[in-house]
Amino acid sequence: MNTSLRQPNDGTGLFGEQYSRRNRPQPTRDGEQTGRWIALDESGWDGDQLYGGSRSRYMIIGSVAISDEEAVDLVDDLRRTTRVQAPELKFGTSFARDGQTQRRKALAALLGPGGALEKRASVYVLDKHYFIVGKLIDLFIEEQAYKQGLDIRNTGVARKMARDLFTEGPRALGSTLFNRLLAATVAFTSHKNRDQQVSVDDFYDVVEEAWARSSRRNVTRLLGLLRTTRAEAREYLDDAFGPDASLPAALEPLIPGVAAVTGNWSRRVGRANILTDDQRALTDQHLDNIDDDARGLGHPEFRHISRDVRLGELLRGKSSDHPSLQLADLVAGAGFAVAKRHDGHITPAGEDLYPVIVPLIDPAGMLPHDEPNRVAQAGAPAAVSQSR
C-alpha cells in the first residue's frame, strides 16, 4: 500500500478550543530559508503521575530530522521490506512483538551505520524519578535562590543538587522514606492537587522527617535548604492552581521534554521546525509556552532553555497525514523497549534493538548521569527502589 503524500484532513485528531491553532495537516518540506523539519513522538508518557502507578520509569521522545516530502519514500520502502499491511507504521503493533525479529532488523538497518536515517534520529530519555527530584530543586530551592539574585540553574549548581539528592538519597534516608519523599512531591505538585487536598504542611511534614533522619552530609544540607522554602511552596500553589494561575503544568514531563528536544536539535541543525504527534498534553497554550521560551519570552520556569535556539514553526499533526511522524513513532517505540530493558523488563525487542538505539541517546537527556552508554546495561541497579 503506497503511503504517498495524501490529502490532509482538517487538522489533528484532537478537538476543542485548546487545539484549534497549532495544527499542520499539510505535508512538511525543508527549505533553505525556512529550515529543517524535525518530527517528534513519545512513548511511555503517563502525564504528571510519575511515581507509583507509572507503567514505566522512563519516558522517551523519539525524533527524526526529516520532512514528509523525504519520509514518504522511506516509509514505503520500509513497508515493502517488512510487509506491514496496517495503514500506518506503528512500533507497538508491527515491530515490538516476539515474532517480528526480521522487521526489527530492517528498522535497525535504517537507523544504524549506513542507513538512510544515520545521524538523523535521536532518542531523548527521561528518567521520571530523577525528573521528580529535579523539580523538587527547581520549584522551591531554585526559586528561592533566584529571588536572592543567585543563578544556580545556568551555573550547574541546581543540576548537581538534583544528582546528589537522587544518587545519595536512598542511602541517606533508606529507600522507604526516600520513596515517600518522591511520592509526596508528586502528590503536592501534580495537577491532581488542584483542590489542594495535600497542603504545604502535609508536604513539609515529609521533608522534615527526611531531614531529621538523613545520614549523609550532602543530603542533609539539601533537605535543610528545602525546609526553608515554605513560602515558595505556597507561591507554587497560587501560581499553579490559584485564580490567576500562570505556571505551566510543572510536573508534566512532555512539555519540558519537547522544549529540550527542540533546543537540542536547533543547536545541531540551525533553524528547526518542529512537528509533534497530536498528544493531548500539547495544547496550544503549552506549545505557545515552548515557542515563547525559544524566543526568550517564556515563563521563568523555562528561562534556561532558550540559549542558541532558532525555532521556526512548532505544530501538531496526525501520523496518518505525516510519514515523518510514523518514523518518529518507530524511534520512540524502539527507545522505550530499550529503556524497559535497562529497567529490568527484558523483551525480544529491547534485546534486538539496544545496540543501534543506545548510540542515538541524547547525552543532554533527563538522566542522573552523563553516560548514555549505561542504558546498554540490562536490569541495571536503580538508584530508587520501587515495588511493582
Rank of each mutant, 00 (worst) to 15 (best):
M1E: 06
T3W: 13
S4M: 05
F15T: 10
G16R: 12
Y19T: 06
R22A: 07
N23Q: 04
R24E: 08
Q26L: 09
R29I: 10
Q33R: 00
E42A: 09
D46A: 11
Y58M: 13
M59A: 10
V64G: 02
V64S: 04
R79N: 02
R80Y: 08
F95D: 00
F95M: 03
R97W: 06
D98G: 01
R104P: 00
L110E: 04
G115I: 08
G115K: 12
A116H: 14
A116K: 15
E118R: 14
K119G: 08
V125D: 09
K135Q: 09
I141K: 01
D151N: 15
R153S: 11
R171K: 14
R180L: 12
A183M: 13
A184I: 02
Y204E: 03
Y204M: 06
V206Y: 11
N218W: 07
G224T: 05
G224I: 06
T228R: 15
T229C: 15
D239M: 05
D239E: 14
F241D: 08
P243Y: 01
P248I: 00
L254G: 00
A260Y: 04
V261R: 01
R267E: 09
D277G: 15
A281R: 10
L282G: 08
G298T: 04
G298F: 11
P300F: 11
E301M: 10
E301Y: 14
E301W: 13
R303W: 09
R303S: 14
I305V: 14
I305M: 13
I305D: 02
S306N: 12
R310S: 07
L311E: 00
E313G: 11
G317V: 01
K318S: 14
P323E: 03
A332Y: 14
A332Q: 13
V338D: 04
A339E: 03
H342C: 09
I346P: 11
T347N: 06
D362Q: 15
A364L: 12
D370E: 13
N373E: 15
A378T: 09
V384F: 10
